[in-house]
Design a protein around this nucleic acid. Sequence first.
DNA 1: TCTTATTCCTACTATACTCGTAGGAAAGTA
DNA 2: TACTTTCCTACGAGTATAGTAGGAATAAGA
Lengths: 143, 143
Amino acid sequence: MLISTKGRYALRILIDMAEHQTAGCITLQEIAQRQDISEKYLESIVRELVKKGIVAGQRGKGGGYRLCRSPEQITAAEVLRIMEGSLAPVACLTEGAAPCRKAAQCRTLDFWRGLRDVIDDYARSCTIADMMQTGGDGDDYII
Amino acid sequence: MLISTKGRYALRILIDMAEHQTAGCITLQEIAQRQDISEKYLESIVRELVKKGIVAGQRGKGGGYRLCRSPEQITAAEVLRIMEGSLAPVACLTEGAAPCRKAAQCRTLDFWRGLRDVIDDYARSCTIADMMQTGGDGDDYII
DNA sequence: TCTTATTCCTACTATACTCGTAGGAAAGTA
DNA sequence: TACTTTCCTACGAGTATAGTAGGAATAAGA
């Protein structure tokens, strides 16, 4: 029941970008160095964020990435849903899944729905801006 | 971020046992038939529950399993923690994990702690007895 | 005692997923 | 043109999930 590195790194990347935001672009190389994540692996994560309109990329010299929205407008739920595919704890509650044939008789469905809801409510209540307020002083992260 | 079949099945098994509780024992075969889960796979799940004192096994003819506690006293959190190893969403918050060197500087740690807490609070608030009250009329489950 | 039913235990396997790596094409700047 | 940067496709090692297989130990009953 662990969040994968993709989800965890995506949050770190976005916090990093928000903290080092300037008029121009931020390159993958910068982020990779600060966050100590392989540039190539970062690439695959950022690509997902580009595809979903969270960040925008600009190619060529002087290029890089920038946030498409302010950190206040990016929730953890949105980011994690993009990277993990879904925040649902069981397959039958993933977005787009076919409704279960026996849902009406299922003794556990209500429990899983409740779990999904508390996770979703919490993650929607927390933004990149909120995370910038927490923790210490540097660019140091572990998880 | 999915709960594995072990965790999901364990809840179904315990609900099944609670609903079909008698003076004697319930055999794996019965549960396997009602729940439509392979007897062999059930075995590996129930063994974990025996080891942790949730159910007790009795060998030989007329043997089987029975709950060691009333359904009101078995929480989802306890069962899922046994089967999944932990309910923590990130490795650095799993029980017994070494505290992270840079925890003080981490921008995301507070978020993960909060997520762990809402999951844990919710799962501790729900018991096997609660789940018996929900859903429909039969022994039918899917997830 | 012999048979049968049941849990208990160890080992194995196929598949999928996670966590990356590698190489190069496309596009933009100077 | 030269350089930098994103974009795209493919591959690979390691690990976890979801089981399966076979048999030993134990208990009840004929």
